[in-house]
């Protein structure tokens, strides 16, 4: 294919098999993600979407197969600054946790400066900028534990964006956001994708909202990663598949 020749492969999942104990999640599954892809990962609850992300990030080890990110085996990969990961968790700050939104995002910025480097004023400016991107400028001095679940989700996003990553993994980022915030998050992601060529891998159950925006979609089905053309779903060309059934489309 023309595309494979031209485009840089950012993630290569090659023939991996993974199981939790005796429960097989993926079997000889493969996936390639190219630079500037906006990829949706769909599939029923428990199919292994979060597991796939954790495998790619090296948080879990496959029993068989290879995973490369930025052309490096994930075990040897060390440029984590390039990667942003929003894991699938709802309210993660205990309501008594004594830290402001700004401090939480600042901690992330400081981590990406490199070990033991102090924060400079321009690093704090980056913190402000990412708070602004997710619409939290006003809440910088609030205690994170006092924010609502959706607001905390935005704090997580600001944390990820502050490092100016090249590759984003978002595990169900829309959960808990009101429709308006969902819309503005989609717009932010599209903007980052188009303007900065950010590569995005997003796990979601919101198929109809997603197919309008992504350029690729994979579904985890029966331990395999299957590719689907989002355009066909957007144009409602496909009326009968396990995806339309699962998500009650059309």
């Amino acid at each position: 294919m023309q595309r494979e020749k031209v485009m840089e492969k950012i993630i290569e999942v090659k023939d991996i098999t993974f199981s939790y104990g005796s429960k097989t999640i993926l079997e000889n599954a493969s996936l390639t993600v190219f630079r500037s892809d906006f990829l949706a990962v769909v599939g029923p609850n428990g199919s292994g979407k979060s597991t796939l992300i954790k495998l790619i990030l090296g948080l879990l080890k496959p029993q068989k197969g290879k995973i490369l990110i930025f052309n490096t085996p994930v075990e040897a990969f060390n440029q984590w600054k390039k990667i942003g990961y929003l894991s699938q968790r709802a309210a993660f700050f205990n309501s008594h946790f004594p830290a402001t939104v700004r401090e939480v995002v600042g901690a992330q910025a400081s981590a990406h400066l490199g070990f033991l480097k102090p924060m400079r004023p321009k690093d704090w400016e980056r913190v402000e900028k990412s708070l602004e991107m997710v619409g939290l400028s006003e809440l910088g001095n609030c205690l994170v534990g006092r924010l609502s679940g959706g607001q905390q989700q935005k704090v997580m996003l600001a944390r990820i964006l502050v490092a100016e990553p090249e590759l984003l993994f978002l595990d169900e980022p829309m959960v808990g956001l009101d429709p308006e915030s969902q819309e503005s998050l989609y717009m932010l992601l599209e903007k980052l994708h188009k303007e900065q060529g950010l590569t995005i891998v997003m796990v979601t159950h919101d198929i109809s909202g997603t197919v309008k925006r992504v350029n690729r979609m994979v579904c985890i089905h029966q331990n395999k990663i299957l590719e689907h053309d989002p355009q066909l779903y957007k144009d409602k060309k496909i009326t009968h598949s396990y995806i339309t059934q699962l998500y009650h489309l059309h």
Binding site: W80, F93, A99, V104, A107, A111, V144
Partner: peptide, 13 residues
């Protein structure tokens, strides 16, 4: 960082 998100801290290097 580790106090509020150990896994995130690991990923951030």
């Amino acid at each position: 960082f580790i106090a509020f998100d150990e896994e995130g801290a690991r990923i951030a290097g």
